[in-house]
Amino acid sequence: MKKLLSNSIGEKLKLKISGKKAVTGILIDIGSDILVLFDGKDYLYIPTAHVHDMHVLETDEITINPPNESPNFEHQDSLSLRKILNSSKGMFIEIYTSGNQALHGYVTSIMNNYFVFYSPVYKTMLISLYHLKWLIPYVSDLRPYGLGNEKLPLIPANISLARSLEVQIEKMAGELIIINLGEYYQAIGKVASLENNFIELVTAKQDNIFINMQHVKTIHFANK
């Protein structure tokens, strides 16, 4: 991908992203597994695994002025998703995983196949790296929802973290959790077990349902 797009840096592109999303912008940079697009306002850091297709736009198809400033994350060597996430720790960012709702907050920890994200709305969240569609850093003088330090403190999550999301879920047996922002009611329940890549949840009416880990994008705690 990097070699394929290296000659397109500075071109205006339209990309179709997983989740039936389309984004347009100027290609700023390309790394081993991520590209940087400037849409006229923000820098979008997009994992290439979620790019379904792309094409170069004609000059008159869209008007986007080139950025006046450098990308928000400085990097001295090759660009990658993990390096960008590490650079974003403690910075306010917007991330998108699915649906029509973006998440706002900051990264606190990065593990093997997930990262921990603090949202002023949902509090501590576990985000699957595989399902991260894009990341947008805030400009330096903005804060989510205009909250001050007393409402949005920059403190790491006070939980013991496993290296993988699967092991982390096993450790959460007995916890009440919400999966994928509760996009359907059966994605809310108490963790009973994890077996054969399926999470067993006990629902409010004490039914047992099983959710495939491959489709788990976000997890947050109902009582934390």
Rank of each mutant, 00 (worst) to 15 (best):
L85D: 03
I127G: 01
L4M: 09
L27E: 01
P156E: 15
L194P: 00
S119N: 08
D33E: 03
E175W: 12
E58I: 09
N158T: 04
G105I: 00
I17H: 04
H131S: 09
N65R: 13
H50I: 08
T59V: 12
Q101L: 12
V36W: 04
P144M: 06
A49N: 04
K217A: 03
N65K: 14
A22P: 00
A22D: 14
K2T: 06
G19C: 09
T218L: 14
P66S: 15
E69C: 04
L135M: 12
L37F: 05
S80M: 00
K14Q: 05
P71Y: 06
S119P: 10
V139F: 15
P156D: 13
A102H: 13
V167W: 03
L57Q: 03
G19V: 02
T108R: 02
G99H: 12
E58P: 02
I93S: 06
N65Q: 11
F115V: 02
I17W: 05
N208R: 15
W134M: 09
Q186H: 05
I159K: 12
E195D: 06
I26Y: 08
V56W: 11
E175C: 11
E183A: 05
L13K: 07
E58T: 13
D53Y: 14
V56M: 11
I136C: 13
K224L: 13
D60C: 04
N72V: 06
L81M: 11
Y118N: 10
T97W: 07
Q206P: 00
A204C: 11
I169A: 09
E200M: 02
G19D: 03
K20N: 05
G19L: 14
I178S: 08
G19M: 14
Y185E: 15
L147V: 08
E166R: 08
N208F: 12
D33L: 04
Y122D: 10
